[in-house]
Design a protein around this nucleic acid. Structure first.
Length: 435
RNA sequence: GCGGGUGUAGCUCAGUUGGUUAGAGCGUCUGUUUGUGGCACAGAAGGCCGUGGGUUCAAUUCCCAUCACUCGCCCCA
């Protein structure tokens, strides 16, 4: 019985080809965030389990996390998301950090999920947040950053849609029709599944959670009217003039004025996380084959305050790499990602030491260079270069070393050129931005 | 938690209505080619047919169990 070559269930191996895709994603994320003035941070992958137990979410910790007891008897949990950690960090140095504080990170996270398409257990998730800016401009900026990232992945506006809602508006509505805490929770769940049910099922579920007097006072009609509002100006009269509705209108207007034409009000946006308190949004893939919510975020006002000290409002979003992979796959948006190695030196005969000198020379001139010291036959050396996707092979033998003229072969188009090293380096440099 | 599918060569998969030495393509290695890959030709290596049990003269094939992988539903802080 031999040891399995498979990674742990739900975990991922990144061979070089996969890693270059990951790095492409990380680079787009990082550059977009930095362009908006966000600073990178990181936190440990392990946290005290209590960090995730704040909302009485024992069940979630038990069933969907990697939790274990360490040698010191502490209960630790591998992070399932970054928001609790970053809130902890901000709370820990809240007097020293300047506000508004813009932070981003690309953490590896783990959830003990049941496996299915588009859902592994290990994932990487961009997290970007603004702390200490309560204005609507913060919400706007976070959504604009999300959108910019989609644009940088070469998505066009008909490929995705930004759906925006407001917890506070929803709560106002619940209050208006007289729902208590329990009823509100149930109602949120019904709304969350609104698109998956037909009218009869919906009315049955709503009826089930309403008290008779609420039913008579027209609560059902108001809910229905609200959920059918596919634009912000179609809200029911009852909440149409509320300050939260005004905020949403202002937000949508300002987004549109920055060119984001694919943002719209969507009353069914709930977000699974219950720490969101106000504006919440989701970015949805419009492809009929992959029509699903990809990522989202919103404002959360209570997390930093949990650690004692002052509360600090925050707005942010999280974007996972797996759903992004699906998006780039279905819309065919992956660019060609050449390997970092630019030149592969094929050694002819017994001149490895001389060839190493050439390799050093190339490296000193800024060319990423690998050398074949295997002593294998020339055709095998070329084949290895091809297999690794390396564009150029440089041949080094006795003659070349003697007269300092080298043959550079372009494996992609088969052309060959013989020059001195300086000239060859400039050819390589010229080809970098081209193909 | 519920339901479906699949386990045969490094990879993708055939196949055996139960019967001697188990098949293909791709890949790998060798050679044609002792200084030039992709094409072609010739050859080679590589399999407890997932694991355990049962039926049988005989099981990779049929039956049961088990494990692994996989897809969908539920869930998704």
């Amino acid at each position: 019985m031999s040891i399995s070559t498979q990674p742990v269930k739900g975990a991922r191996d990144f061979y070089p080809v996969d890693m270059s895709k990951q790095n492409y994603i990380y680079n787009v994320w990082r550059q977009a965030c930095q362009r908006f003035g966000y600073e990178e941070y990181d936190a440990p992958i392990l946290e005290n389990t209590e960090l995730y137990l704040q909302k009485g979410s024992q069940e979630i910790v038990d069933e969907q996390t990697y939790t274990f007891t360490d040698r010191g008897g502490r209960s630790l949990t591998i992070r399932t998301e970054m928001t609790p950690s970053v809130s902890r960090m901000v709370a820990g140095k809240q007097q020293q950090l300047g506000y508004p504080l813009r932070l981003f990170s690309i953490p590896q996270c783990w959830r003990y999920e049941r496996m299915q398409r588009g859902r592994g257990r290990e994932f990487y998730q961009l997290n970007a947040d603004i702390f200490g800016d309560a204005s609507l401009f913060g919400d706007q900026e976070i959504i604009e950053l999300s959108d910019t990232i989609m644009q940088r992945f070469n998505a066009s506006r008909n490929m995705y849609s930004i759906r925006i809602s407001s917890r506070k508006l929803l709560n106002e509505l619940f209050e208006l029709i007289g729902l208590n805490e329990t009823q509100s929770d149930s109602m949120r769940r019904v709304i969350d599944g609104y698109h998956k049910m037909d009218a009869a099922e919906f009315s049955a579920k709503v009826d089930a959670l309403l008290a008779p007097n609420q039913r008579e006072s027209g609560a059902f009609q108001i809910m229905q009217e609200f959920l059918q509002a596919n634009a912000i100006d179609k809200l029911p009269d009852a909440v149409n003039q509320s300050p939260h509705a005004h905020n949403l209108k202002a937000l949508l207007l300002s987004l549109e004025s920055t060119g984001i034409t694919n943002a719209q009000f969507d009353p069914t946006i709930i977000r699974g996380f219950d720490y969101y308190t106000d504006v919440a949004f989701e970015v949805v893939d419009m492809d009929p084959e992959n029509n699903r919510s990809m990522f989202g975020g919103g404002r959360y006002e209570g997390l930093v305050g949990m650690f004692g000290g002052d509360n600090i409002t925050a707005v942010g979003f999280g974007m996972g790499d797996i759903t992004l992979h699906n998006f780039l796959d279905t819309h065919n948006l992956w660019p060609t990602l050449p390997p970092a190695t630019e030149v592969y030196i094929a050694v002819i005969g017994d001149v490895v030491i001389g060839a190493q000198g050439i390799a050093k020379h190339l490296r000193d001139m800024g060319v990423n260079t690998a050398i074949d010291t295997s002593g294998r036959k020339l055709d095998k050396q070329i084949k290895t270069a091809e297999k690794h996707g390396i564009k150029y092979v440089l041949f080094v033998g006795d003659n070349e070393l003697a007269n300092e003229q080298f043959k550079l072969k372009n494996i992609v188009d088969g052309t060959e050129e013989v020059h001195g090293l300086e000239r060859l380096v400039s050819i390589i440099q010229d080809s970098r931005d081209g193909n």
